[in-house]
Amino acid sequence: MEKFDVFLCHNSKDKPAVIQVAEQLKQRELEPWLDIWELRPGFSWQDSLEQQINQIGAVAIFVGSSGFGPWQSQEINAFLRQFVNRKCPVIPVLLSDAPTEPQLPLFLQGLMWVDFRSSQPDPMGQLIWGITGLKPGTRPTIQPKPPETSPKLIKTNDLASEKGIDYTKLRDLLAAHKWKEADIETYLMMMQAVGKKDGGWFSTDELLNFPCTDLRKIDQLWVKYSNGKFGFSVQKKIYLGVGGKADGKYYEEAWNKFGDKVGWRRGWILNKEWISYSEGTFDTSAPVAHLPMRASWRKSIEFELGWASGIWVTDAMSSLASRVVNCNI
């Protein structure tokens, strides 16, 4: 079972703000458990939550302008029982839009909280102290790893590229939630980054050596505009979580589990098949990490709008995961 450092308990209306906190924790090499990243479609969310509640190291309870959600109270009660039994840290966290005088439940009022409405003391440092026990100033907080050094960065607004690529169109498509068009644009931009024309596919070496700055920017755009649901970094996390290895090699069991989890394999349990590109789900009903897709398609079995669609390259996810890891994404 994958080990997590902290469970993020929150009202679904506050999810965008909580995702930002989760991404900052990951940059500091902490593993947050966030429902949108970890709950597998088709399985009981109650079982998954119970499993994490029984082994998680800490819980952060977020309070924003929306107050407490209906399920949040159940999660809080379960963690409070664990807190009593094994001294699990229960950390109230006030988001930046929390009321001036938040109405906290009685059992939270006696706990020290983290306040993102104020910059002093540093709320992220305080939160990490609560999770890890490492007090800011006494031992250094783990800092985000610096990006891999690039030979030369060419910027279009804030869209950095090692290869002089303009990501404005991709950003605009993602901002408009035109997911399929954005998926194809991602493929075209990645082809441009490795010096190829569209209509082809990526070799293992090209993925293992893909420009870090460009891969990071593509991923950041997908993660940002999907509220953490899509992106190469999201796919990497799931692939490694089901036993895959980031070494560019093919691991059939992990690959099949990954396909099941992100919706690229469908059918009955004993008769599942890999979908074609045209069968992909290009809206927010798609499973977590379902997109991007087009960049890793290879063997042509049909054509749609001039784009070859077909069978997923079996080593592509391992190669992409390896590059994402090595680029500190």
Score class of each variant (00 low, 15 high):
109 Q>A: 13
99 P>K: 12
221 L>C: 02
39 L>S: 04
40 R>E: 06
117 R>F: 11
278 S>H: 11
29 E>Q: 12
171 R>S: 11
216 R>N: 01
164 G>T: 11
96 S>A: 15
200 G>T: 09
309 S>P: 01
162 E>N: 13
209 N>I: 03
95 L>C: 08
149 T>D: 06
8 L>E: 01
187 Y>P: 02
60 A>V: 07
108 L>M: 15
60 A>C: 11
297 W>E: 04
31 E>V: 09
133 G>L: 09
304 E>K: 15
219 D>F: 04
18 V>M: 08
86 R>L: 13
58 A>I: 09
325 V>H: 00
125 G>V: 08
172 D>N: 15
144 P>S: 14
19 I>A: 07
200 G>Q: 06
277 Y>S: 14
60 A>G: 13
138 T>L: 14
99 P>E: 10
89 P>M: 10
215 L>T: 00
177 H>E: 09
70 P>E: 04
236 K>F: 06
58 A>W: 04
77 N>F: 12
307 W>R: 09
191 M>N: 06
322 S>I: 08
317 M>T: 10
230 F>I: 07
261 K>G: 03
121 P>C: 15
103 Q>Y: 05
51 Q>K: 07
221 L>F: 01
315 D>W: 12
191 M>A: 09
56 I>M: 13
134 L>K: 07
198 D>M: 06
217 K>F: 02
239 Y>V: 14
90 V>G: 03
257 K>N: 03
52 Q>A: 06
191 M>P: 00
79 F>Q: 02
52 Q>D: 06
11 N>I: 04
298 R>M: 10
189 M>W: 00
247 D>S: 14
